[in-house]
Design a binder for these strands. Structure first.
Lengths: 222, 222
DNA sequence: ACACCAAAAATTGTCGACAAAAAGACTTGT
DNA sequence: ACAAGTCTTTTTGTCGACAATTTTTGGTGT
């Protein structure tokens, strides 16, 4: 499988990945200030390395930086999450459309196989599907778009932010069986090379997730 | 008007903007290697500053970097440009949808006024419309989406790349009068708060541009 | 007590130097 | 003449120190 994962080579790479993980997982709290000197001692690297890592985190929209002042981890908000899902609807809808056009027959076969293995999991009542399975499914379609920018925007940017919300606001979210059906129909459309339908179904699928999340959020807040 | 333009404050900022401009305008050729030491003498700043600038250029997908090897300006290709337009179709379509939902009545009025001033230009046969006017129109709608990520992706990323193609492959492109009509219909849909239609018309508008460009490119190559 | 200004402390921005890795040049052997 | 390996050179990666800016602290006057 052609996976999309750059192995870290330089220490700045490793520090960037580590920092991103620590922020996404909540080890470093949302909204917290990132002191360069403090982080450099914590992670045992020079300030230059920390600076490079922070710069890259800024490009991902995981931290916000003000000149001569410093960087803060972004604050999580309901509207922020909904904005992310608007992007996802747009970009992943297009990804599904392009996947229907550009995926090889072999890749589609693999996608169908993945779906079947998920079906087994769902039938056995495993909750595996919820997180990794869902992500894997979407990953394949995004990769199937064969559009470099699309892939990078979603994998390097949006997805880490989405995960940050998922982890820190605790949205594992069910929707397992219904989501499975939606996935199935999307794959079918892709297999039929029906670009319009693939895009439409994907957009709906994400809109549903979005509404599901919004309901949860408002029920928590009330 | 709430414009989207960060004024450079640190020298790294300025160097980044300067470098980006020089690449977009072709002063530094597409595909060229970016030597850190060379650039630091050319621009009269330290290597650390150059490195930060290059890192930010990498986030914009304007340069590609390989660890321990160096950075190169991206190569321009037909498929690369078409891929950019796929993203634009998706993202700006969503922007138009969100603009129809989120723009204030005042902003919409300003947008209509802008359109009228463009109409004057077109009637007088001015070619002003082609570049700045078109960009301004799209900018307002993107800003009108009120989606931070959407705005950043297009303004900080895609648009500079698109301009790089325009400048270096010399695509000023006519389509003036037809594009004007398309713009008019889009504004009308936004004014009517018709989200579906606004998105659809914007997507068509960009698809037309895309096809126009593709025809030009293939006619050049043949 | 509060507002305002000035000095001190802390933090970010920039720089030059050293370490590590890659690219190029040269030698050697077949 | 060509290939492989080694040494040299060049380039990138990392580090600590200095400069510039912001924040905090402390004092002064009203």
């Amino acid at each position: 499988m052609t996976r999309y994962s750059q192995t870290p080579v330089t220490t700045a790479d490793k520090t960037f990945y580590q920092l991103r993980q620590d922020i996404v997982e909540g080890v470093i709290a949302a909204g917290a200030k990132l002191s360069e000197t403090e982080l450099s001692t914590t992670y045992g690297v020079s300030r230059a390395v920390i600076r490079e890592a922070i710069n890259r985190l800024e490009s991902c929209h995981i931290v916000e930086r003000r000149a001569n002042v410093g960087a803060r981890v972004v604050a999580l908000s309901e509207e922020g999450l909904l904005a992310l899902y608007e992007i996802r609807e747009s970009l992943e809808g297009m990804a599904a459309r392009l996947a229907a056009k550009n995926m090889s027959d072999e890749e589609i076969a693999e996608l169908e196989a993945l779906l079947i293995s998920h079906f087994q999991d769902v039938k056995q009542g495993e909750s595996y599907y919820q997180e990794a399975g869902d992500v894997d499914f979407h990953y394949r379609i995004i990769l199937g778009s064969k559009n470099k920018h699309l892939i990078s925007m979603l994998f390097d940017g949006i997805y880490h932010l989405v995960r940050m919300y998922r982890v820190q606001l605790g949205m594992a979210g069910p929707r397992v069986t219904t989501a499975y059906d939606e996935h199935r129909h999307i794959v079918q459309a892709i297999a039929n090379r029906d670009q319009e339908l693939a895009e439409m179904l994907m957009r709906r699928h994400i809109t549903y997730s979005r509404n599901n999340i919004r309901n949860k959020l408002s029920s928590i807040q009330s």
